[in-house]
């Protein structure tokens, strides 16, 4: 008897879910290599006194959003559209919670 559609579907779906579960578990366990990497990078951040991620290097407020003037709504405002699309991702520095 050929395999039933329902069973094929069940097996495929279950293996997909298991794979997803495995990926979740893989990311949640302790990872010494990852801990080492973080220690090294945190040392660099401290030594170089960095305050920002180097994600967007095109303008001051995208390179250093934490140091930008949040009350200067004109040319330096993070929502200025002169650097579309990246300019619109950045919102001004948030006050600490």
């Amino acid at each position: 008897m050929p395999l039933r559609r329902a069973d094929i579907f069940g097996v495929l779906t279950a293996s997909g879910l298991l794979l997803l579960l495995a990926l979740v578990l893989r990311g949640s366990g302790p990872d010494p290599a990852e801990a080492d990497r973080l220690t090294r990078l945190q040392r660099l951040v401290t030594e170089a006194q960095l305050t920002d991620l180097a994600l967007l290097t095109e303008a001051r407020y995208t390179r250093h959003p934490t140091q930008a003037d949040h009350f200067a709504p004109f040319q330096d405002h993070p929502l200025a559209l002169d650097h579309f699309p990246s300019g619109m991702f950045w919102s001004p520095r948030r006050p600490a919670p």
Partner: peptide, 23 residues
């Protein structure tokens, strides 16, 4: 500028309601 504020800025950018996600 407090360190917490720096972290909050990035948290806001990549947050739920943050620009990137929103768009």
């Amino acid at each position: 500028i407090l360190r917490e504020e720096m972290q909050a800025t990035y948290a806001a950018v990549f947050d739920w309601r943050g620009g990137l996600l929103l768009v």
